[in-house]
Amino acid sequence: MILVVNGVEHELDLDPRTTLLDALREHIGLTGAKKGCDHGQCGACTVLLDGRRVNSCLILAVTQQGTPITTIEGIDHPVQRGFLEHDGFQCGYCTPGQICSAVGMLDEVAQGWPSAVTDGGGDDLLSDAEVRERMSGNLCRCGAYANMVPAIKEAAAQ
């Protein structure tokens, strides 16, 4: 099968049980996406599929032949600078997933997608409450959330 990751084609011979996360980490050597819970509950494995954020641990690699896949290694985005400037991490294990998720989330906001805390239209889709709700699929064991919120908001303003 052929996986297109960060613009590069990789020809792989994989067992159909292989998740996209394991294909990236164990077969392509891109270890930025992390295996946290391996059950879609923590968000550490977040990558972008055709620009949309997803949990790569719950996706079978065989289903994504030809789909453009972007991992943290292929991202160059103000969110990364924001995390550095606002100290949006402690141990760093969840950070690649947080950043991929934030990049995908900001694109969702740009398209005007609502969230569970959005009331009607025209409100600030990047208030603190919005950022927290929209990023709730990414857990941080160290609890660095308080610094991630301004990091993401500042990146969005750029």
């Binding site: 997803v54 719950l58 998720s101 990023m135």
Partner: peptide, 15 residues
Amino acid sequence: SQGLLAGASGQLRNM
């Protein structure tokens, strides 16, 4: 719309 947004996470809803 509200029911859907109350469920799962942004990543899971995309899938």
